[in-house]
Amino acid sequence: MSSPWLDEQQQRTWRAWLAVAELLPRTLDAQLQRDAGLTHAAYVVLAMLSEAPGGNLRMSDLARTANQSQSRLSHTVARLEERGWVRREKAAEDRRGNVAVLTDAGRDVVERVAPGHVAAVREGVFAALTPAQTQALEEALTAVLNRLDPDATLRAHEPG
């Protein structure tokens, strides 16, 4: 029978993960607030829409792609609608669902803010890692993600 406690290395790794999970979003939020008055969650919604064909996604697909609950996404999209960066429309194919559509003003925000966001991610994460560490981190996170979401229905789709 295994110990109910984490071993020393697991404990150090877990605590480092907890600290990164708290500090990295705070750092990215600060950059996005400074540059555009946006939260990271709102930026991710805009970015996912900017990458989608036609700049639109069904709300359910956007929630999954942006790794947000339906409720949180609805609030995020409402705030983006107030700013004129997103609009909601009925889905053309079935008229039952809603589609979030990136407006021209929203696309302008993404294009203006993306370089600073990429720089913040690069500085906050990748500047501290060697290429081998980056590859090892990708492999480790992918393994955890595959354990948490084995059928890949909850996660954002990988680019490419």
Rank of each mutant, 00 (worst) to 15 (best):
A63I: 00
R64T: 06
R64L: 07
R64K: 13
T65S: 14
T65P: 00
T65N: 15
T65R: 13
Q68K: 12
S69P: 07
Q70W: 11
Q70I: 13
S71I: 09
R72M: 09
L73W: 05
L73G: 01
L73C: 02
L73K: 01
S74M: 13
S74W: 08
S74A: 10
H75A: 10
T76W: 03
T76I: 12
V77I: 10
A78I: 07
R79T: 14
L80H: 02
E82P: 10
E82Y: 12
E82D: 14
R83V: 05
G84M: 06
G84K: 09
W85Q: 05
W85E: 10
V86G: 05
R87H: 13
R88H: 07
R88A: 02
R88D: 03
R88T: 08
K90G: 05
K90C: 05
K90S: 14
A91V: 10
A92P: 07
A92E: 14
E93C: 05
D94T: 09
D94F: 06
R95Q: 15
R96Q: 13
R96S: 12
G97K: 02
G97H: 09
N98K: 15
N98L: 14
N98T: 11
V99A: 06
V99P: 04
V99D: 02
A100P: 03
A100M: 02
V101R: 11
L102W: 01
T103K: 06
T103Q: 04
D104Q: 11
A105F: 01
A105V: 12
G106R: 00
G106S: 03
R107N: 09
D108T: 15
D108F: 03
D108N: 11
V109T: 08
V109E: 06
V109L: 06
V110S: 06
V110F: 00
E111I: 01
E111M: 04
R112E: 15
R112Y: 06
R112T: 13
R112P: 11
R112C: 03
V113F: 08
V113K: 10
V113D: 08
A114W: 08
P115W: 06
P115F: 03
P115L: 02
P115R: 07
P115N: 05
P115E: 04
G116F: 02
G116W: 02
H117K: 12
H117T: 11
H117N: 14
H117I: 08
V118A: 08
V118H: 10
A119F: 04
A119L: 14
A119K: 14
A120T: 03
A120S: 06
A120W: 07
A120D: 06
V121H: 01
R122M: 14
E123T: 14
G124Y: 00
V125P: 02
V125Q: 01
F126M: 09
F126Y: 15
A127N: 10
A127G: 09
A128H: 15
L129D: 07
L129K: 07
L129G: 02
L129F: 00
T130Y: 05
P131I: 00
P131E: 04
A132G: 15
A132D: 13
